[in-house]
């Protein structure tokens, strides 16, 4: 790191834990998560905000970690794929992907799951069209999306206790 690197003290909550660290001004959130905090569940798939693999929740709303500067997350709560389970027990959205085979190669899955989690928090009973629209910023090259939609529907059903 060059000596003239500009840094900011960043105070933000990641997966429920408060972190206060000096971060370079030009550090992307995805690199903060992966390289500084060791949370490698969040993936880097493209260089242009096209694939959605890096999707995390910032204050509960889906956001590309690769198009967000870490320092902009001051006082915000970031949630990654690592935050969903409870002591090894899968969250409903994870169980949906597991049981309906919503993951194939699995690379898009962390972003897809976080986008779906964000969607279900605002819309607990989405129609198929709403699921398609809600996940439109996430690309999957394996599944053809059918199994992903079934996974989200299964999770929504479980969350509604049906």
């Amino acid at each position: 790191m060059p000596l003239d690197q500009h840094k900011t003290i960043l105070n933000c909550t990641v997966n429920g834990r408060e972190h206060i660290r000096a971060v370079p001004d030009n550090l992307l959130l995805v690199d903060y998560l992966r390289e500084h905090l060791g949370l490698t569940g969040t993936k880097i798939g493209c260089d242009g905000g096209e694939c959605g693999c890096c999707t995390v929740l910032v204050d509960g709303i889906a956001r590309h970690a690769c198009l967000t500067l870490a320092a902009v997350c001051e006082d915000k709560a970031v949630e990654t794929i690592e935050s969903l389970d409870t002591r090894g027990r899968l969250a409903p959205i994870q169980r949906g992907f597991h049981e309906k085979l919503g993951a194939q190669c699995g690379f898009c899955t962390p972003g897809m799951v976080m986008a779906a989690e964000g969607l279900l928090r605002t819309n607990p009973d989405p129609s198929e069209d709403e699921i398609r629209a809600g996940l439109a910023a996430n690309i999957c090259r394996c599944t053809g999306y059918v199994k992903i939609i079934e996974a989200v529907q299964a999770a929504a059903k479980e969350l509604r206790h049906e």
């Binding site: 500009h6 001004d25 030009n26 550090l27 880097i44 001051e74």
Partner: peptide, 11 residues
């Protein structure tokens, strides 16, 4: 790590 030019961020 992704390439990023060195800049100062103002908020």
């Amino acid at each position: 790590m992704e390439f990023m030019p060195n800049f100062r961020l103002h908020r």
